[in-house]
Simulated scan of single mutants.
Amino acid sequence: MSALKIDFTAGWYEAAPSTNVPDLLAEESGRLRLLSADLGLKHDFGAVGPVECPIAYDPVRGLAFRYVCAAGFRGRDFSQLRAFSVARGESYPLIDLPLNQWALWMLEWIASGQGHVGQLLGLHAMDRAADDRVVIEHRLFSLKLGADQLRLRPICRDAYKPLAFSRRRGEFIFSGAEGIYLLGLKGERKLSLPSVEDVGGEGAAFSPSGDAQVVIGGDGLHLWDLERNLCRRLTRNGRYPVWAPDGQGIWYRESSADLHYYDLAKDETQRILALPKQRHPEFWHARPVCLSRNGCYLALSITEKVLRGVSLKGSATGARERVYVHDHQLVVLDVKQQVYWGREGYASQLHWAD
């Protein structure tokens, strides 16, 4: 463990990882890495670039997928979707994209039955010149392994950032300037969240049972009933909700320095962990927790924000500014055994190789 002091709720304790814990894919410092159960480095796949894109994973073939691009001006500029073999420690490009196109914010692996090859589903972005400005267009894309081009579909007006996708329902949750929407696979708007109150739109999750329910984070957690188009608040604070696979509760963050669990049946919130003395909490480093497929393990990064001092030079307004430093820790929790372990470091993207 690092020097960070973590306050866990009663009943949790630090322990060594069990032998059943799967490997973990993590993007650390702009590089995709495969970590062993104890969070040690197993393989470094190399730089993936600065574009915010999740890691997708095919458990049958043991392949991870991510968008990658150049991370500076020293080397060759490129833009591509890439596959990473967990077993062989190798990577290869799936498709090269023009330099004005990229994939961001969403990447899902969709398995196919009866021995057919699966496909990637994601958000495609392209910049183009329009009069005296540059316009960025967003479209949905799918890519079958072995195909030489993306299949693109338009998105309805104002759908800007994807918040969640349900494979069982074939639906998306998107946010935009005018609100939050339910979209179909063709990019069409099927439903708009009632504008009763501002829910924020910082993360969302569909019910794992396939029921017509979505939890949305931002200004607290809100439960959206898609059949009746009604929304109610669950918690006062909360972002980046992740529905537990058993459907009984929701994991979420209140800052970069904590983890909470909301019990749906009891209508109760429990703080699982937090860093003490965080007088100025922020969300800059917060990400959704990464759950294993069986829900037994979860991984997340937590960040301590510490006041280092006050700048000697004043700002533009003449006032001196506080100077903060951030210390990070990558933590894994065994939910069933209520034990945890971790090490120093920060991962902006995580995915279990299970």
Score class of each variant (00 low, 15 high):
160 Y>F: 06
133 R>D: 12
127 D>H: 13
166 S>R: 02
166 S>E: 06
73 F>E: 14
95 I>S: 05
84 F>H: 04
91 S>R: 08
133 R>K: 14
75 G>S: 15
81 L>R: 07
163 L>R: 00
59 P>I: 04
177 A>V: 15
72 G>R: 12
116 H>P: 06
158 D>V: 01
88 R>K: 11
139 R>Y: 01
65 F>T: 05
151 R>M: 00
93 P>F: 06
146 G>E: 00
73 F>H: 13
136 I>Y: 07
65 F>N: 05
170 G>I: 09
50 P>C: 05
84 F>K: 05
82 R>T: 11
152 L>V: 03
52 E>R: 12
121 L>Q: 13
163 L>H: 01
136 I>R: 09
70 A>K: 11
57 Y>K: 07
74 R>N: 15
49 G>D: 06
97 L>V: 03
68 V>S: 15
124 H>V: 03
80 Q>S: 10
92 Y>S: 15
88 R>I: 00
169 R>W: 04
134 V>M: 11
74 R>C: 11
109 W>R: 14
155 I>F: 01
132 D>L: 14
150 L>Y: 00
77 D>F: 10
84 F>W: 07
167 R>C: 09
148 D>Y: 00
139 R>G: 01
108 E>C: 09
61 R>Q: 13
137 E>V: 10
128 R>C: 11
134 V>D: 05
119 Q>R: 15
61 R>H: 14
121 L>P: 05
79 S>I: 10
79 S>Y: 02
56 A>V: 08
69 C>P: 10
111 A>C: 09
48 V>F: 04
99 L>R: 11
162 P>N: 06
73 F>P: 02
113 G>K: 15
54 P>E: 12
162 P>M: 02
145 L>Y: 03
48 V>N: 07
144 K>E: 07
162 P>G: 02
136 I>C: 05
116 H>T: 15
143 L>A: 05
78 F>D: 08
149 Q>R: 04
125 A>L: 13
174 F>H: 07
155 I>L: 07
64 A>M: 09
98 P>H: 04
160 Y>E: 04
95 I>W: 04
74 R>G: 13
65 F>H: 11
127 D>Q: 15
74 R>L: 15
132 D>N: 13
119 Q>H: 15
66 R>P: 08
86 V>Q: 01
55 I>A: 12
98 P>A: 02
79 S>G: 04
169 R>C: 12
151 R>L: 03
135 V>D: 12
123 L>K: 10
72 G>Q: 13
52 E>L: 12
54 P>N: 07
59 P>K: 08
80 Q>C: 08
68 V>F: 09
150 L>I: 02
86 V>F: 07
68 V>E: 14
175 S>A: 13
141 F>W: 01
135 V>G: 06
103 A>I: 10
133 R>G: 04
120 L>D: 08
161 K>H: 02
123 L>I: 08
167 R>Y: 06
176 G>Y: 09
61 R>V: 06
129 A>V: 11
